[in-house]
Amino acid sequence: MVNTAPYSKEDILFILAGIVDPEIPVVTIQEMGMLRDVILMDDLCEVIITPTYTGCPAMGIIEHDIVELLIQNGVQNVKVTTSYSPAWTTDWMNDGTKEKLKNFGIAAPIHSSCTNWLNPKSVIVSCPRCNSTHTTMISQFGSTACKALYKCEDCKEPFDYFKCH
């Protein structure tokens, strides 16, 4: 068994930064804020991740990707731990990440302090294609747990909005 000594915590985080979200392959799990921490022990590398939603089906794939990638890099003994606290929030995404989402066709989440959860229709969401703010929510629930379904009244295209969480 290879011990984890040749790698520092930063090295491991750097390696893991390459793993993309299986459902939104333009952003990494680090950019999404799902990669929380790495704890190095003598013969064990523990990676702490947090789910976007409790039932996020991508978690199993992400866990598998983490173990696989670290083994390829010679870290044999890997443990992936799921932590729920602090609860994941879309506020952890920076502007660069939000820009990537937009270019991928997903309207980025607005800051959680700007939403009134009791009245989701009060939120103004811009169309990721034409930037129009003349948009309508079709459903709070879309193709994945983290997205709502919108349509643009100007370019007439439907699009996903990454729900504020």
Binding site: T54, C56, S139, G142, A145
Partner: peptide, 17 residues
Amino acid sequence: LEEDLALTNLALDQIGR
């Protein structure tokens, strides 16, 4: 269709919990 997605999204949250 939208409701089908909504209800199954709710199911997923519950099963995750």
